[in-house]
């Protein structure tokens, strides 16, 4: 019969349309809210999704996986006295590894000792160059630069971020990437302990030194 294929195809679309309402009813019967809840969004992004597929941004948002990356940001620790401890040490790995070369860092020297100050004097990222590849975060040895989850950053002008705009607290970082934060924190603690143990050993060695003064050279 001519037209059978078309009818079959229309049957598929009709089923899709119908599924939305049967699912709605099923959720009501189960006493759950299908829209505007995290559970609902999760279900609509799973294999069991049927009928409606829309996640109604901005009222609902997709659940971002932890590894999700958008723009880079710098991490600082809040100190008890309200000051910020910037983790970046201006080591220069991120500007070196950055594929589009969108990171600019000014490192200055201490006027007294002449040695470089770890904290960057200026830190610029041109977000209109950045390709969100995540290399800066991946290769940063100090966990000082990370990739953000926040994508609502559109603006009425060009986006060149200076240090003020780039800095975000480590609590924020913990909130978006809890597993990564935990892993890095654990690594930091073991490293600190190892360092402490080493120092203790050295101190012990030094403390032991006066007890055994080197034998005076005998003539």
């Amino acid at each position: 019969m001519y037209g059978k294929g078309i009818l079959k195809g229309l049957g598929v679309t009709w089923k899709r349309f119908w599924d939305t309402y049967t699912e709605d009813i099923a959720w009501v019967l189960r006493g759950k809210k299908r829209y505007y809840t995290e559970e609902g969004v999760q279900h609509r992004s799973s294999k069991d999704q049927k009928g409606i597929f829309t996640v109604q941004y901005p009222e609902e948002k997709l659940i971002q996986p932890e590894e999700s990356r958008f723009l880079p940001f710098l991490v600082y620790n809040k100190l008890p006295d309200g000051k910020r401890e910037i983790l970046c040490t201006s080591c220069g790995i991120c500007p070196k590894v950055c594929p589009p070369q969108c990171i600019w860092i000014v490192r200055s020297n201490d006027p007294v000792t002449g040695r470089p100050i770890p904290e960057p004097t200026e830190f610029y990222i041109d977000m209109d160059l950045c390709m969100n590849c995540g290399y800066c975060a991946e290769y940063c040895p100090f966990d000082a630069i990370k990739m953000d989850h926040d994508f609502e950053v559109s603006s009425y002008g060009r986006n060149v971020y200076d240090m003020e705009k780039l800095l975000k607290s480590s609590e924020y970082y913990k909130s978006i990437r809890p597993l990564n934060y935990e892993r890095e924190e654990a690594a930091r603690i073991t490293e600190a302990e190892a360092k402490k143990a080493k120092e203790a050993a050295r101190a012990a060695a030094q403390a032991a030194k006066p007890a055994n003064p080197p034998a005076a050279p005998t003539a």
């Binding site: 958008f70 723009l71 977000m127 209109d128 950045c130 390709m131 969100n132 994508f151 950053v153 559109s154 603006s155 009425y156 002008g157 060009r158 986006n159």
Partner: peptide, 8 residues
């Protein structure tokens, strides 16, 4: 409007 991101 400028939307940063690669791609947004």
């Amino acid at each position: 409007v400028y939307i940063p991101g690669c791609p947004p």
